[in-house]
Computed example of a mutant assay.
Amino acid sequence: MSIAADERRTRILEIVRKLGTVRVADLAARLDIPAVTVRRDVATLAETGLLRRSHGSVSVPDERAGAETDARTLGLIVPTVSHTISQYFDEVIAGARAAAADAGAHLVLGISSYDPGADRGQAEQLLKSGAEGLMLTPNWMSTSNPDDRLWLNELPVPTVLVERRAPVGTAAAELDSVSSDHQHGVLLALRHLAALGHDTVVLAARRDTWTALQVRSGYAEGCATLGLTPQPVIDIDDPATAPERVAGRLAEAVGRGVRAALVHNDQDAIQLPALLRARGLSVPEGLALISYDDVFAALGAPPLTAVAPPKRAVGAAAVDLLLRRLRQGAALPVHRVELLPELKVRASCGRAGTA
């Protein structure tokens, strides 16, 4: 016999209040109710504030913990210049939004272009909106002058850099930061390909973002660390013509004996298997392929092995760090937090290897 929704939710609340924290799957088993129904009920209870969701589990909200940050308004500025970058930061935003909600804080979003001065303008707007702390992903590609970053240190509220790591010795290096360790991510990809027997891997990468530059430097360091033979980097410049041209360059590399490639990012990598087939090459038989970003690499044909930066975790960690800074002020040492990417192994590299 089916149970009415109100009765189900009452029983869910009783179990959670009794046990403290419960996995959704365990709730479903205890109630002998399909997990999809329990998830729907939990979502309804969470929206009303009666339950708190986190990583597949539910608990009763701690009102004392939430009261400490109820009044906080946090500003988050992320860049947008292409569909892929927007998708990447969608996940960063989702992680920040969830962490802010869990803490009882209010998140306000600003979207900045890569035009000079856009970041500063967005920061000023968020401050006018009442932001008590800022999380910024600044544009560091349009200028190489360190003085152009001084405005970051002049902001009147605590600031955390997101997916950026300021060079040591610069003023911005004195700010808190949370970022993915992209050089480690590249090393994971190269190590996986080396474990599959490849002693040469070619990199095709952009040059228009901070992440792209980290991937490039990580490639040089990773090849040296693993004893791989480095190749000239294939530049991905014009998005309209890049995939066709990159496919041609990769085909030339295969002609020289290269059988593995790392491509930054998904938008370019996912188009390559079809373009390579038109040149008589198949993935992974003719060329093992790894993508960087893992935004939609799993949707490729074949599904692409990909380096997955911890995008949601970066957003959540930035919120947590900013709230700590707001509570503790100068008593908290400057933090430079780097989170390690994962390698999602799929079909585009061929036989299984050690990641």
Rank of each mutant, 00 (worst) to 15 (best):
D268R: 01
Y219P: 09
P156G: 02
G110V: 04
A195V: 09
R52K: 07
L126W: 05
A308L: 07
S144P: 05
R97P: 00
L76I: 13
A298P: 07
I234R: 09
A205R: 11
A99T: 05
L304W: 04
V201C: 01
P61M: 12
I15V: 15
R52Y: 06
L228Q: 15
R249Q: 15
G110Q: 04
P341S: 07
A189L: 07
R216A: 03
P303S: 02
T225P: 10
V258C: 01
L276W: 14
S59W: 11
F89S: 00
A204Q: 12
H184I: 07
K128W: 00
S112D: 05
T200E: 13
T241W: 08
P138Y: 08
N145A: 01
A278T: 15
N139D: 13
E252H: 06
D293P: 13
T37C: 03
L226D: 08
V334W: 03
P167I: 05
V337L: 09
G197S: 08
A242S: 14
D294C: 05
I270H: 06
L51D: 03
A189H: 13
E252I: 00
L13C: 06
L289A: 03
R206F: 10
A96Q: 07
P333F: 06
R325N: 01
D294R: 07
D208H: 13
G222I: 11
Y114T: 02
G104H: 12
R97Y: 06
D237P: 12
G350H: 10
E7P: 06
A205G: 09
P273A: 03
L51Y: 03
S112T: 14
M135C: 02
L13N: 05
V202E: 01
A101M: 06
L27P: 15
G75S: 11
M1T: 13
A352L: 06
P284C: 04
V337Q: 06
E163S: 05
L155T: 07
A67R: 15
S179D: 14
S179I: 09
V295N: 05
R277M: 09
S282L: 11
S2G: 05
R149S: 12
A297L: 06
A288F: 10
G66T: 13
D293V: 09
G227E: 15
